[in-house]
């Protein structure tokens, strides 16, 4: 295929696909709507990543470096695709600034959007300054300023992490498990304990899904080495007694209501479909699944295919996904794009 492959989105999946294609000698155009590459780990300032414990800026930064400025990779920042026309093998994408890009095929690596906690007002986000999200805690850690209550800058004595905020919740139309938050929360809890050993961390859970090998390295390491405590309770509401936050719920293992004071409450926010997915769906002519993520055509036979021939998808655009799996899917999509032969064209050649 002589025409370049258009990759939409410069996060882990897009960077991985771009690297794989460039390594195979395939020209790539990488379109990113923000002013820099890296996706959520870089744009949202993640701290140390699961499972390698490397800093996001080092690990994902290295992925950016090996793509940016590389021969055969044309990176367009601050760019969005406005229309996408043509046939498989001869697509034309028009950017918002009017630039036209010819592409043989395209890979959508448009990622996800963090759940906005104001949609669960009973848990106090937006009402009390010391109610924060996992993303904010990631930023506290990666900025080097440590764990501090936003209200007055004190180091919290006690932190509660609430799991499944914006996940597994029919009330707000989000029935999926966001897959990563349990492990991320255990990771964050351990980092908090390391940064301020006097801070006690409690995790309120319904189920714990630190899947696979994370069971030992995160679920148990957080308890055995870092003394993080897990409480089986779905929290009903977060209020304040004027001084500290009050976390109310039912401890279901002892069948008793709890009303416990905390200095900081952290929402382990889930992964929503990209807020632009309706637009992406109509611009690229791809179907969304019932949850609002970009639908994959097949699970086994044709990895990365959407309903539209020549348009592939990878990473968290397809559903909640880990960084390492997004990278693997990016490579799989690159493989699919490299091997893609538009129907009818083979016979013509």
């Amino acid at each position: 295929m002589t025409k370049p492959v258009l990759i939409v989105g410069g996060g882990p999946a897009g960077l991985s696909a771009a690297h794989a294609l460039a390594s195979a000698g395939q020209k790539v155009v990488l379109v990113e709507k923000e002013d820099r590459l890296g996706g959520a780990p870089i744009l949202d300032g993640y701290a140390k990543l699961v499972p390698s414990h490397e800093w996001a800026k080092d690990a994902i930064g290295a992925m950016v470096d090996r793509v940016q400025g590389r021969e055969g990779v044309d990176v367009r920042l601050n760019a969005q695709v406005q229309s996408f026309e043509g046939e498989p093998g001869a697509f034309t994408a028009t950017l918002k600034d009017g630039t036209k890009i010819e592409a043989g095929s395209t890979i959508l690596t448009t990622g996800f959007t963090h759940f906005d906690s104001v949609n669960k007002p009973e848990w106090g986000f937006g009402t009390f300054p010391d109610v924060v999200t996992t993303v904010q805690v990631e930023q506290m850690i990666s900025s080097g300023k440590g764990i501090r209550c936003p209200s007055d800058g004190r180091v919290p004595d006690r932190v509660a992490i609430l799991l499944c905020v914006g996940s597994r919740d029919r009330q707000i139309g989000r029935e999926w498990c966001s897959k990563i938050c349990c492990t991320v929360s255990a990771n964050i809890a351990m980092e908090i304990r390391e940064l301020s050993p006097k801070t006690n961390v409690y995790i309120y859970y319904m189920d714990i899904r630190t899947f696979g090998l994370y069971e030992g390295d995160y679920y148990w390491a957080s308890q055995e080495e870092h003394k993080v405590k897990y409480i089986k309770a779905r929290i009903a509401e977060v209020t304040s007694d004027g001084k500290r936050l009050l976390v109310k719920g039912e401890d279901t293992l002892i069948k008793r209501p709890v009303s416990i004071p905390f200095d900081m409450v952290v929402h382990a926010i889930g992964m929503d479909p990209n807020v632009d997915n309706m637009t992406i769906s109509s611009v690229f002519g791809v179907d969304l699944n019932k949850y609002g993520y970009i639908a994959k055509q097949s699970t086994y036979a044709h990895l990365a295919e959407t309903n539209r021939p020549g348009v592939f998808v990878a990473g968290a655009a397809t559903g909640p996904e880990t960084i390492d799996d997004s990278i693997a899917q990016g490579q799989a999509a690159a493989m699919a794009a490299l091997n893609f032969k538009p129907a009818g064209k083979v016979a013509a050649e």
Partner: peptide, 10 residues
Amino acid sequence: TGRSLTDYND
């Protein structure tokens, strides 16, 4: 009176 638990001994 309320029967809710009001604190943990860390």
